[in-house]
Design a binder for these strands. Structure first.
Lengths: 197, 197
DNA sequence: TGGTCATTAATGAATGACCATTCATCAACA
DNA sequence: TGTTGATGAATGGTCATTCATTAATGACCA
């Protein structure tokens, strides 16, 4: 059989997994289905992944890597905490809303077991929350945002709003763009962060 | 074998299912495990439920029934939209935080497939969101809350905050009470709903 | 240049474990 | 004695994973 550039098949397997898992769910997708769509033999999957579950982990890692990379780029030039947070909100919705199949996986399939969610949450989402909390703390220090609530609490609240919008969008059948909700989310969040009278 | 009052075994099976599914996940729990804990034979499960998945649906229905009943009671005496929304926030956190095993199921296990989440979401959570949106619309009409955002959007945002707090609590290992976050959530939400300057 | 050979990616049929569901049988009741 | 709730061993189907086999490649040598 022909040799392939090493990265090729791994990517092909991940791409196939996104499509299959998005439409049949993680447990409804067999390794054979993924192999078939990727154009490889069942056994080949095991040359690149230790098992079925590692495919799901890799999927999440790949998505988070892209997410983080893009975020770092986009925020590089912004100093103002208000501008930074607004950018985070728009970017979150834009990136999640950019690929419906992937969104189904991040919003639904990845959350299917306590052990799994716990692992992911701690590993990657925790860092994201820290980043948001950092921006909020800056805004508090600058005196533009309320200080009677902890930055980490506020970060979780903001994330909760974004995550709910994303999940709602995934479940809605109507053909809307998730990013279109950026303006409303921003208004809501900025309102919540205003200093109290 | 002795006859039981009809409801008894069904309840016992559901109670057993909560414990098993909370600790092993839905797919990691076998029907035999549930039967064993409930003190019935494997086959008995099928006298009360059409299949394994119906157990999960029934679990959610039972929880939502209790939730709704309690909510209706508690809100009966309150007219002021502000008081009503504050009560909803506290109640949500109190009820979800009252039973960790059940919380694991509502926050994690019930969301394991698009088809499933979609079904539940439309059937029961949709009604809950409508109720919150109704309270918000009242407050807007009374002039105490901002009117530049739709009631349903605001209801989803508030739900997102509550849901994130609940999930975060389920995943956290520290021994905190979920209801303790009611005050901070209320301050956040009330801040977000204030009329814009 | 052309002909071995060793190496390694890739294959896919076979394996074995797991588990939801069924149903022949049992035992308590009226 | 007929009815019915309950039992739990047996069944059948489904897959994740393995591994003996195949084939492409490059190294080496004449």
């Amino acid at each position: 059989m022909p040799r392939q550039a090493t990265g090729r098949k791994k990517e092909a397997i991940l791409d196939a997994a996104v499509v299959e898992i998005a439409s049949h769910g993680y447990h409804g997708t067999t390794v054979a289905m993924i192999a078939r769509r990727a154009g490889v033999a069942d056994g080949t999957i095991y040359l690149y992944f230790a098992g079925k579950e590692e495919i799901l982990v890799s999927l999440f890692d790949r998505a988070m890597d892209r997410f983080t990379e893009r975020g770092t780029d986009e925020l590089a030039g912004l100093d103002d905490p208000v501008a930074r947070l607004m950018r985070i909100i728009d970017l979150h919705l834009e990136l999640v809303g950019g690929d419906r199949d992937l969104a189904i996986i991040t919003q639904v399939e990845l959350r299917h077991s306590l052990h799994f969610l716990d692992q992911l949450s701690r590993a990657r989402v925790g860092g994201y929350l820290q980043a948001i909390a950092g921006v909020i703390a800056e805004g508090q220090a600058a005196g533009v945002w309320r200080r009677d609530l902890e930055p980490m609490f506020l970060a979780k609240a903001v994330f909760g709003v974004l995550d709910e919008m994303a999940t709602d969008w995934v479940l809605s059948r109507r053909n809307t763009r998730l990013a279109a909700r950026g303006d409303a989310v921003t208004r809501f969040v900025m309102g919540a962060l205003r200093p109290t009278a």
